[in-house]
Simulated scan of single mutants.
Amino acid sequence: MSFISIQQQFIEAIKAPDMAVPADVPEARMAVYRELFFNNVEGFVSSAFPVLKSLYTAGDWLQLVRLFFRKHDCQSPLFVDIAGEFLAFLQQEYQPTELDPPFMLELAHYEWLELVVSIAQTPDHEGPLTGDIDSAPLLLASHAKVVQYHYEVQRIRADFRPAAPAAEPLFFCVYRDADDRVCFLRLNPLTAQTLALLGERPGLDLGALNQALSELYPTMDEETLAAGLWQLLQLLADKGIIQQKLK
């Protein structure tokens, strides 16, 4: 048997406790490996998805993480990426059961996004707004993400489980403030569209942004839109959600 085959057999035995232990590997030693690897993965998943975990019994949660540990082929060896791997498993491989809340995927995505925002790096081409907001090239900050959900994911906890989705789509911005705290902001559709434009077309100034929104909302009065947009951008800049594009 080749070294690669032995290595694969060893990995499969670690992931699946019911599999036979590879030849010449003591059962006690394999038990240590199994416990160590699973506990590490379970710890990272639990710390990344605390609200989701709180909706399950301890046994049901361990069963879910065990299924992920056994079935999912992780594409990254980095522990910081485990949360993303777990989300990918839920979205693409996992078949929900009666134990899973209907908002499981949206809640998991929201909690994963909080982690993404918390560790996002600021590239050299963006920085806090220092110029006049009327002429500054603007963009959506790298540590800010705009999302759309059907459930009020920010309110979900063990004693609040929405039974049905909202009547209309819900828009949120998850961002990191100046004190490195992860925050969220509920958005109306116009604000969500504004941030989406700045994310898709970084460098737009107030005039270009106002023109783009006027084309999307032709029934809105242009002067009212322009005045409201200036105030909105100032608010978003103060929160660090939008930044200035640097040369």
Results as ranks from 00 to 15, higher is better:
122 T>S: 09
157 R>K: 15
186 R>V: 10
92 Q>A: 13
44 F>W: 13
200 E>Y: 10
122 T>Q: 13
187 L>N: 08
106 E>Q: 14
122 T>E: 13
232 L>R: 09
169 P>C: 09
1 M>I: 10
54 S>W: 00
197 L>Q: 06
224 T>V: 13
46 S>I: 02
4 I>Y: 13
114 E>H: 02
181 R>Q: 09
99 L>Q: 15
117 V>F: 03
52 L>W: 07
158 A>V: 15
38 F>Y: 15
175 Y>V: 01
60 D>C: 07
45 V>W: 00
57 T>I: 08
183 C>D: 00
94 Y>P: 14
25 V>T: 12
63 Q>D: 10
220 M>D: 10
32 V>Y: 07
114 E>I: 01
130 T>R: 13
70 R>D: 14
79 F>R: 11
36 L>T: 07
46 S>H: 03
130 T>L: 13
19 M>H: 08
5 S>F: 12
168 E>L: 12
133 I>V: 04
32 V>N: 10
78 L>C: 09
195 L>Y: 01
154 Q>D: 15
235 L>D: 09
33 Y>M: 08
85 E>V: 04
119 I>A: 10
18 D>S: 14
118 S>L: 07
161 R>L: 12
242 I>K: 04
6 I>H: 07
73 D>L: 10
81 D>G: 02
129 L>E: 06
83 A>I: 03
164 A>D: 11
227 A>L: 10
130 T>Y: 05
84 G>T: 03
64 L>H: 07
67 L>Q: 11
140 L>R: 01
53 K>A: 04
243 Q>Y: 03
115 L>Y: 08
144 A>S: 02
127 G>I: 01
16 A>W: 01
35 E>G: 12
25 V>Q: 11
168 E>F: 04
164 A>T: 12
177 D>I: 05
107 L>S: 13
5 S>P: 06
217 Y>L: 09
175 Y>L: 01
166 A>C: 11
114 E>L: 02
66 R>K: 08
235 L>F: 06
195 L>N: 04
136 A>H: 01
158 A>Q: 14
130 T>D: 11
57 T>A: 12
48 A>T: 03
138 L>T: 00
92 Q>E: 13
166 A>E: 15
